[in-house]
């Protein structure tokens, strides 16, 4: 999956997003969020178009985008795995779960994406499901009370 911003359908969608927020205060973050929903990540090209559309400096767009952990600057896999490393997960063995995940995904380190663009693996601070620790979220689904053996089981649902 390369950059899809030249795709005319998607280009129109960016224009639509921009027109919704032009001239409004506080629009930059929602625009970045919606753009990321369309493209999967924020390419330089997309950020430049956003700067242009909202009439702000590209450095401001880049500064805001890189400040928040939600934004990504390289293509992501079809499924995003968020391995929780909150306090409760940490004391319940989150490190082991993530390491097994790395093993099962051919050595994929947190922050990376598999070569077939199927999975992106992220470590996150806390998903707020602490009583089910250790927890992993794949796309919008939460899997709790994990152990090393269950990792492959839940990955298989998405393979």
């Amino acid at each position: 999956m390369g950059c899809r911003c030249s795709d005319s359908f998607n280009r129109n969608r960016l224009s639509a997003i921009l027109s919704e927020y032009q001239g409004k205060s506080g629009g930059l973050i929602p625009v970045l969020q919606k753009a990321q929903n369309v493209y999967g990540y924020l390419s330089e090209d997309v950020m430049l178009k956003i700067a242009d559309g909202l009439e702000i400096k590209p450095s401001v767009v880049y500064g805001v985008a890189t400040f928040y952990t939600q934004f990504r600057f390289s293509p992501v896999g079809e499924h995003i795995i968020r391995a929780c490393h909150g306090t409760a997960c940490h004391v319940s063995g989150a490190e082991n779960i993530t390491r097994v995940m790395t093993d099962k995904l051919g050595g994929l380190e947190p922050g990376g994406t598999t070569a077939d663009m199927k999975f992106t693996l992220d470590k996150v601070a806390c998903l707020g499901c602490c009583s089910l620790a250790p927890v992993v979220m794949i796309d919008n689904d939460v899997y709790g009370r994990l152990n090393e053996a269950r990792v492959e089981e839940i990955l298989a649902l998405y393979r």
Partner: peptide, 25 residues
């Protein structure tokens, strides 16, 4: 509703305000 974009410091009220305004929190 304003969806946060992921920054712990935005729990601090002046940072949260900056974030709603569209800036770095």
């Amino acid at each position: 509703i304003k969806e946060g974009a992921g920054a712990f410091v935005c729990g601090e009220e002046t940072a949260l305000i900056a974030s709603i305004e569209g800036s770095r929190g």
